[in-house]
């Protein structure tokens, strides 16, 4: 699970504070994506800095917070969001509604699947149906798990799989 975190920090107005605030992010394995240094915004004599970074897990983020506390870096505001990855699969062929239900149940039981939307079309008179499955997952490994899930399923049930081309 990858988290993207945006924090408003307040640093003491003495040289070397910015480096001292950013250092725990890299040393704990975080990945700095952006820093905005507001020299002109003073809050209680401190300088405002906005930092965006990625952390691989909640414990990593908490280690960074602990380190900031030790270094007297004040944290004024935290916004964090889990990074999600889109999924898109199109299934074409003789897919019954029972099979679709079973596919949906299978997907719901896979870890880190955040959301799923299923669209299912096809005339009652024709054996060919199409299902479009879209959604998001919160881990890159799950993308591979889903590819394998659909690959096995389409091989076994003999319908065509069209996977999304991730950007």
């Amino acid at each position: 699970m990858k988290m993207k975190i945006n924090v408003d920090l307040r640093l003491k107005d003495v040289p070397g504070q910015l480096v001292s605030a950013l250092d725990p992010i890299s040393s704990c394995g975080g990945n700095i994506r952006g820093v905005v240094h507001h020299h002109d915004v003073k809050d209680g004599g401190r300088i405002a800095v906005n930092v965006t970074f990625e952390a691989s897990s909640d414990p990593v983020f908490h280690r960074i917070l602990d380190e900031w506390e030790k270094r007297d870096v004040e944290v004024a505001k935290i916004n964090s969001f889990i990074e999600t990855y889109p999924i898109r699969y199109l299934l074409v062929g003789d897919i019954s509604s029972a099979e679709m239900e079973s596919v949906t149940r299978g997907l719901e039981s896979i870890e880190n699947v955040v959301s799923i939307d299923v669209r299912y079309t096809g005339a009652a008179t024709s054996s060919s149906h199409t299902a479009l499955i879209t959604g998001t997952v919160s881990s890159q490994d799950t993308l591979k798990t889903l590819d394998d899930f659909f690959y096995e399923r389409t091989q076994k049930k003999n319908y065509l799989l069209v996977r999304g081309l991730e950007l």
Binding site: V92, T130, V162
Partner: peptide
Amino acid sequence: NITEDAIALAAE
């Protein structure tokens, strides 16, 4: 085995 329905759903 690509059908017109599949193309239309992709377009959506």
